[in-house]
Nucleic acid binder design. Structure first.
Length: 340
RNA sequence: GCAGAGGUGGCGGAGCGGUCAAACGCAUCGGACUGUAAAUCCGACUCCUUCGGGAUACACUGGUUCAAAUCCAGUCCUCUGCA
């Protein structure tokens, strides 16, 4: 597989956190035009676990997926689960130690184990473990986060090379996450330091929207100006269609967000005529397609009224069809951008 | 016909003298969601309001009380037993 296209073209990657894009079969996923997906190191570590994944031949074999697989390092999950106090655990110099609330098992995620897990999953593009934190950090906290992220990135790269032979031997790519919260200067410094270490891609991490829901364009610009053009430029968690357009305009080429699939499940749909909410009463008798300009399985065959009825009555088929639509919309959006 | 139980907001169902415009669930109507613990979460849900409040409300009619969805009497319904 030629992974170098990830450095050139635009891609939208749906999140298949636990090795499945919710409610889609791999065939349906493919039919949306999806070429790459993002799976999650931390979630797969807990279920089904590294040993099982290894025995089953990796996530691609499990899914029957022949496209590209990214593995997110687990840095964001450590943040969102530990820092929101939903899980017990701690982030320390060596990584994160935490307990899953269901089984109570203790796990340790270090730069090295994160790489090991991502290798076991059978990822094509690995992400270095990063110290992800909240947006509203003090300068000092942001500096600590950058400092730790840089140290961990270096450890990830060393481990990837010494243990597995790096890109040369594995054919896999390694990317690093740029932190620095909402301090553009820190973002810039972090990007520069990571470039010195040298990666196949640089991912804009942390929170990508501010408290008003606006894309943090200044910080994103500070980063993109300091990383090479011929690398992966991944805007993690971006975003709404308009945010993807904005991020693409300033130079990012890879995107992922849960909004596509989650909003589909919650009834918020993206269309060429703007956002619609399929559960709203006005959809009850609307016999038109979700998006008349869309050619997905959902829009070709079913009316808004029918989908409205199914979603309101908890018919899971609606979740599948609406996910197909939203994801197709995003892939078409990316296709349109690529042709500009 | 006799004996028991009961009638509460769109529905189910709490409350059994004051803090009740009435818990909770469902339905309904909005909204949110940005490296997914999310088929989730939040809000509204009698009418009017200058958002401080105000006016009607717990089958119906009357009564007791400073005060009634809550107590009493009658009326009308419903359900369960027995004839």
């Amino acid at each position: 597989m030629d992974l170098d296209i990830l450095k050139e073209k635009l891609f939208f990657m749906p999140d298949a956190t636990r090795g499945a894009v919710r409610y889609l079969t791999t065939k349906q996923l493919k039919e949306t035009g999806t070429q790459a997906i993002v799976t999650n190191t931390l979630h797969l570590l807990i279920h089904p676990g590294v040993d099982v994944i290894r025995k089953l031949g990796g996530i691609k074999k499990m899914m029957g997926w022949d496209g590209i697989v990214f593995t997110d390092s687990g840095g964001f999950q450590v943040f969102s689960l530990l820092h929101s106090k939903k899980w017990k655990g701690k982030v320390h110099e060596n990584g994160a130690t935490f307990k899953s609330p269901k089984e109570g098992n203790t796990y340790e995620l270090t730069p090295e184990t994160s790489i090991d897990i991502q290798m076991a999953i059978g990822s094509d593009v690995l992400v270095c473990l990063d110290d992800c934190r909240d947006t509203n950090l003090t300068q000092k906290e942001a500096e600590q986060s950058v400092d730790r992220t840089l140290k961990w990135a270096l450890r990830c790269k060393s481990h990837f090379e010494s243990e597995y032979g790096g890109t040369k031997k594995t054919g896999k790519l390694l990317t690093a996450v740029v932190q620095g919260a909402n301090f553009s200067k820190l973002r810039e410094q972090c990007a520069k330091e990571l470039v010195k270490i040298g990666f196949d891609g640089y991912n804009f991490g942390g929170y990508v929207v501010n408290e008003y829901g606006e894309l943090v364009v200044d910080e994103m610009t500070a980063v993109i100006e300091n990383i090479p053009k011929d690398t992966i430029r991944y805007a993690m968690g971006v975003g709404k269609p308009e945010d993807i357009l904005r991020a693409a305009k300033i130079g990012y080429n890879l995107f992922d967000t849960v909004l596509v699939t989650r909003n589909a499940r919650h009834g918020t749909l993206y269309t060429s005529q703007g956002v619609i909410r399929i559960k709203n009463s006005e959809m009850g008798l609307d016999q038109g397609a979700v998006d008349p300009n869309c050619n997905c399985e959902c829009c070709r065959n079913y009316s808004r009224a029918y989908l409205h009825h199914m979603l309101k009555n908890n018919e899971a088929t609606a979740l599948t069809l609406l996910t197909i639509h939203n994801l197709t919309y995003y892939q078409d959006l990316i296709k349109g951008l690529s042709q500009v």
